[in-house]
Amino acid sequence: MDSLLWGVRLIAILVLIWGVAGTIVQGLNGAGPSAEAWRDLVVAGIAQGAMYGLIALGYSMVYGVLGFINFAHGEVFMAGAMSGFFVANYLWQVHFWDNYFVLAILLVLLTSVLTSMLVAVIVERVAYRPLRASPRLVPLITSIGISFFIQYSFAGLFGVAVKNYPPAPDSLRNRIGFLGLEIEGTKLAVIVVALISMGLLYLFVEKTRTGRSIRAVAEDKEIAALMGINVDRTIVASFAVGGVMAGVAGTLWSLLFRGVAFHTGFLPGIKAFTAAVLGGIGNLPGAMVGGLFLGTFEGVGSQLVLAGLGIPAVSQLKDVVAFTALVLVLIFRPTGLFGERLSSEDRA
């Protein structure tokens, strides 16, 4: 059993080395992507990863306080992006979008954040609160149900077609110099906004009263209750904060990829969960770093490792790379790269 795991580990490392070496050889022969292409891949990966990180925060917070995977969190993100679309589309039609872009995007952000927060809080109230005392797989199964319910409700309510956000103004889409690198403006904006949101969240959790309560409840619900903390309200607060982050991610996603549909939330949701585990679940800075790492790894890694193995059309296998990362992390380092922070009863 243990020897088998060692075998898997060895094979994984060998494949990794072999692939990278292959890519380097290709690069030396001038066959692989150019340096610019690599740079773009990395930047795109980081931008993508920043969004994973934002969504991952929601998983991490809920896992921290309640100890289960809120499978529906990807849908919270999708709800934000979708609601933002309707506002953006309206603003586009009345020509507000091009003329006052910053104001418009703030309005979209506000809508998106509020919707995500609302969806997260409603889901907690309706579905999770009654299950507080159940074995942990029960809320997990429920959250799968919620995920499907929200997806297909949105499909029914708003139609199944992919909705395309109006394009960002050219000034933002052009490449701009940043630290000596030429980076597409949108991606830079996404990364910056994500980092700022993350910083604010960190301050919120570390410095405010509510943040302290959240940490206390994550540590031990019963003791927290005995210390006079309103556990219910704190749990709602952590769902709300997770929702806010998902809403921010929703807007950023729409800026970057523009297309939103009812199933948009699913894959980013799973990957964000992977990011949360990667960083150590319950560990907020870890979630962000895990997101950045996963985003970069799935973008660059598929190119770096798989292309070197001589596999065609590697971009198809991006998800395989991400899922493999998930599997390997959970097999070999289930506590994540930076350690998890869970209450004692959840560690068992």
Partner: peptide, 25 residues
């Protein structure tokens, strides 16, 4: 693995297998 991690990892395996069947590779 813990029960909930098992759920997600098996989900990951399911998707990996499907994507591999689908891939050009």
């Amino acid at each position: 693995m813990r029960g909930d991690y098992l759920a997600i990892v098996t989900l990951g395996f399911g998707e990996i297998i499907r994507i591999l069947f689908l891939s050009d590779w």
